[in-house]
Design a binder for these strands. Sequence first.
DNA 1: CTGAAAGCGCTTACAG
DNA 2: CTGAAAGCGCTTACAG
Lengths: 327, 327
Amino acid sequence: MSRVTSADVARESGFSRTTVSYVLNDAPGVSISEATRRHVLETADRLGYTPSAPARALRSGRSDVVLCVLPDWTVGPVIDTLIDHLTTLFAEHGLALLVFNDRDSRPLTELWRAVTPRAVLALGPLTDTDAAAMRTARIPVVGSALDEDPHPETFAVPQHGIAELQVEHLAARGHRVLAYAAPSDERLAAFAERRLAGARAACRRLGLPEPRTRTVELEIASAAAAVRAWRADDSVTGVVAYNDEVAFAVLAGVRAEGLVTPDDVAVIGVDDIPLARLASPALTTVWQAIDAQAEHLTASVLAALGHPVPPPRPVGELFHVVERAST
Amino acid sequence: MSRVTSADVARESGFSRTTVSYVLNDAPGVSISEATRRHVLETADRLGYTPSAPARALRSGRSDVVLCVLPDWTVGPVIDTLIDHLTTLFAEHGLALLVFNDRDSRPLTELWRAVTPRAVLALGPLTDTDAAAMRTARIPVVGSALDEDPHPETFAVPQHGIAELQVEHLAARGHRVLAYAAPSDERLAAFAERRLAGARAACRRLGLPEPRTRTVELEIASAAAAVRAWRADDSVTGVVAYNDEVAFAVLAGVRAEGLVTPDDVAVIGVDDIPLARLASPALTTVWQAIDAQAEHLTASVLAALGHPVPPPRPVGELFHVVERAST
DNA sequence: CTGAAAGCGCTTACAG
DNA sequence: CTGAAAGCGCTTACAG
């Protein structure tokens, strides 16, 4: 009672394995009589035939899986949404997106060897070893949205642009002395750095003093301390938060200090998570066009695979401020 | 310049493919001279040899991948944590966990056929078709934590127990008239139902009136309307929220109605998401032992694969209340 | 300790 | 339109 193979279908239907294969794969350039086709299909169905993926992969030298390697960061709702979009988009091209959470504990190498993906979409940095090994195995690797020097076809979200938007928003509201609330999670450092750089640049451009930067943990005490310091030393009135979670902490810190948002301290986040509108007060934040990001990422991978990809529609708006009560 | 095969290693090292294979796989019960072993290994390394997973899978009839099918629910931080634990645990057994976001749009069938996983861990319900097909393909499927009638070895989180804990907590605080804030997301309905049933049972047991149930969207207006109705019709003083997100909405609704938490309305959530402690006021919630859940799920899969699994350590505490200011 | 050979399931030139 | 055959890369009895 072992697995049903195409040979079984051939035997059972009375045709050759060649014919069966032609029918099953809708082989181009081969004409099969309708009766034959139907008979084969019916037999395959009746037998419960399932093609063997490994055999197929061995034969063709390729699988239909795109491996998405998730870096070690806290996976937030934004990434979830991104993956969702990616899965759908790849599916439209007959490719299945598989997600792997990269952690130090387990070697990525073994995994992608076991899966032999058609391509790898690395949303975070890869080990040099892994990258080299993939190159050797001739698996196209499309870099993260963080790459400083992306392949020409890779799409990178301009992290600095996000922070610039935040600064501009606060400046337009009349805030002159700004603070930057950085995340404490080291895994976010790479992103935070780039965003902070964007904030700095925007301040410079707008003639504002350098933003006061402090790491804010997701705890009231930490946030309160930061708020206290910002107010005492520099009379900060606007806080640019790394993301909505950090912004929530800052809001809590402001409250804890007996201050009021936005009157005493305005706060702006990034991501527009579902809870943002439920914050007290409702959180102003930067919305990101995740779908567009997904589209470009997908296009990059397809291009790397040599698919004829229609040029992705112009990027257009990648993010914009969602104004709420916190600024 | 195609791929390096074990045959290449054999040719290059001057040994037979058999010997090479023995060395490369540390074949048990075969002794190879140290010199030979070293030479083969060195050659493989020098050539950059990578075993072909499809060939291996075809040969052995099995892959080293466990496919985790994520249902259509909003993936929250809790699931992320769970997957993280699962990935690590499976890795310890030489299995790679791959996550697939199930969506209506794309057939699961094609995917697991392409991956030929050793086992499937379905965190949500599967189509009958898929389930049947997997059975035919002899891929063990371990059911979700939601199964009403799980396999004996499957571990199910008692959803109702979570709500019971919530009700007990509020009752202990003197609340008599409780409300249940259900999520609006239909994909959560299955969970919500079970939790609501638990809340009902607990109320009955404690001699409290049936909890007033309302669906609360993640918007202030919706939550405010619910709070208004609860207060007006039934003078509800305690709200059991489906999860922390819904609890955030209720908190916002209470504020919007000019009421105060916990004096006018107490609120308790589920999950203890990072933002819970940053709510205004800090949210009382139910913490879940995700690691224990992951352990049991992993053990279920390994058992289904016939691995000699040590009996999982006793479940112990699966969840407990984290007391904060909202109750 | 090592080699020659079979076979996992599939697809695809190559002949009919 | 269909069949016999080769070969993708690997592992493992089976003989030496």
